[in-house]
């Protein structure tokens, strides 16, 4: 579904990604971990081209994202939901409008269809009663659940999560992880950058350790956590577990 080959990204002289290669199949739940600065967020943001890669290739469902025109790119992004660390809800719109603005303005749904689908998604994330509220009336956990719902309304083939719980108060982390687990169980393809090792162990089909701009180690969660190969991963795990 997603094939990444030798992906490179530099900011000025600073090379953040030094050749990342990975294939992700439909239905996989890939959890990416690593220290800050290891390039895991940049990797994720390259996948939907929020960052423009400096080299390498990304294929998504047969489209070459490096060579893609802007038009193709926007089409691809409709199929890749993204959830941000800081939610990035639209503060001037009601929750319902937050969910429906993209499908309506992109004309993939009529207003009625979008409203209906928003209703379903709000129910799914357990916030059906908040449809007419504004984002700043919600708690952090609720905001992130809305952000997930907003991405889901577009009916994406894959969901990208960029540290979805890092900006939350500890007591709110659970509700968001619970929702993500539910999504995983429904078979959604997911790529999750996170520090939540529990989530990785429980939900991931594959765990990827990024270090110094490359994938240093990847494995199924069982092996990954119980039998890490590289000393760097061992050192990292001993710190976070």
């Amino acid at each position: 579904m997603i094939e990444v080959k030798d992906l490179r990204k530099s900011f000025g002289d600073l090379e953040i990604l030094k050749g990342v290669t990975i294939n992700i199949e439909k239905g996989e739940k890939v959890v990416v971990i690593g220290q800050s600065g290891s390039g895991k967020s940049t990797f994720l943001r390259c996948l939907n081209r929020l960052e423009k890669p400096s080299g390498g290739s990304i294929m998504f469902e047969g489209t070459d994202l490096i060579a893609a025109t802007d038009k193709q790119l926007y089409k691809v992004r409709e199929k890749m939901g993204m959830v941000f660390q800081h939610f990035n809800l639209f503060p001037h719109l009601t929750i319902r409008k937050n969910l429906t603005i993209a499908p309506v303005k992109l004309r993939v749904m009529s207003k009625e269809e979008a409203d209906e689908r928003a209703e379903i998604m709000l129910k799914k994330v357990g916030l059906a009663d908040k449809a007419e509220s504004y984002p700043n009336m919600l708690s952090g956990g609720q905001k992130q659940r809305i952000a997930i719902a907003r991405a889901l309304v577009m009916n994406p083939d894959v969901m990208l999560f960029d540290e979805p719980t890092s900006a939350l108060d500890p007591e709110m982390v659970g509700e968001v992880l619970e929702l993500m687990k539910q999504l995983a169980e429904e078979g959604m393809t997911m790529i999750v950058v996170t520090h939540e090792m529990g989530f990785a162990k429980e939900v991931a089909s594959r765990v990827v350790f990024m270090d110094g701009g490359v994938i240093a180690e990847e494995n199924d969660p069982q092996t990954f956590f119980s039998n890490p190969e590289s000393p760097r991963l061992r050192a990292f795990l001993s710190k976070v577990l």
Binding site: N48, L50, D70, K71, Y74, K75, R77, E78, M80, G81, M82, F84, H86, N88, L89, F90, I101, A102, K105, L106, R150, A151, M154
Partner: peptide, 21 residues
């Protein structure tokens, strides 16, 4: 900047993001 990115991630192009978001 996150507002631009959120718009882009939903498939809204730059003019639409500018206009609606």
């Amino acid at each position: 900047q996150g507002q631009f990115e959120a718009g882009a991630s939903l498939g809204l192009n730059y003019p639409k993001t500018m206009l609606f978001i």
